[in-house]
Design a protein around this nucleic acid. Structure first.
Lengths: 149, 149
DNA sequence: AACACTGGTGCATAAGTATGCAATACTTGC
DNA sequence: GCAAGTATTGCATACTTATGCACCAGTGTT
């Protein structure tokens, strides 16, 4: 019974606007499930639904949690987060997805490239300071290769 | 300043687990924003955050009505947060009110000026990297105009 | 200056959600 | 079938979030 109800809840929530648990209760009753708000509160918790500006919906992080212990390689990071590589004088500017700059810079630091003097990361931008223009051009090329692979 | 608080809320919600509005209130107070739960309820509504199993988060946009409230323009941001504009070689340094650098840099990024290679923001300072000294002078002039209007 | 108008806020409280507890229903091992 | 253990639920209520109202500060108007 409970599983059937959970299914119905998923359908209702996907198909129509469900603003609150009492509304959900009424819609379920029309389908033959007569339960109280308390039960629905527990159901919603178990189904991991989230409530936002369009009523209830499936949580964005659906599915089992992803675990990853080993620090990802720079290549992986560039493929995952990197968006753009540009150079200005002896500096290379790396644009990343929002929030991706810090981990990307960390991965870059781990590589220990000799021609990089240092990196600074904001939210979506990494500034890479190189020793001179020649090295910057070189670094730019290597990073761009990773991005385009 | 409401816009600064909204920005802080976005950061907190993205970076840490915020289980409820009272927790958010305490975290904001540590950052210097002293408001009540009522105000946060309204803020969360305006930011269209959603509450799910992992606390508050950015809405997954699954709602039927995807209305796009356009972010504030660069001019507005400069008038609201900007304090000073200075240049060094191909770099322009923008000083803002405390905590205003991130939103200011974001607004600058949204403009998509071709002569800007990238921006990096700290708490009250934005570093703007331009492709060369000439373009930096140009960018400096445009920003200064906004500030002084 | 006096006035109305607007946006942002706190207070009090209504509306909505979660949960401890007890009752009931279902399973399992005998 | 029966006792013991487990699962599901409703009730009452604690906890959390939303909102009507009043107030205040800043703006523009007369």
């Amino acid at each position: 019974m409970k599983m059937l109800r959970h299914n119905a809840i998923r359908e209702l929530v996907a198909a129509s606007l469900v603003a609150n648990q009492d509304e959900l209760r009424r819609k379920l009753r029309r389908r033959g499930f007569a339960v109280t708000q308390a039960t629905l509160s527990r159901d919603i918790h178990e189904l991991r639904l989230s409530k936002g500006p369009g009523g209830y919906s499936m949580s964005n992080g659906a599915g089992p949690a992803i675990e990853d212990n080993s620090p990802p390689s720079l290549t992986e990071m560039m493929e995952g987060f990197g968006l753009r590589v540009r150079r200005a004088m002896n500096q290379v500017v790396l644009t990343a997805v929002a929030g991706g700059a810090q981990p990307l810079a960390a991965a870059l630091d781990r590589e220990g490239w000799a021609d990089i003097v240092g990196t600074i990361a904001g939210d979506d931008t990494v500034l890479v300071i190189c020793s001179d223009i020649h090295h910057a051009t070189d670094v730019e090329a290597r990073l761009r290769t990773m991005l385009e692979s």
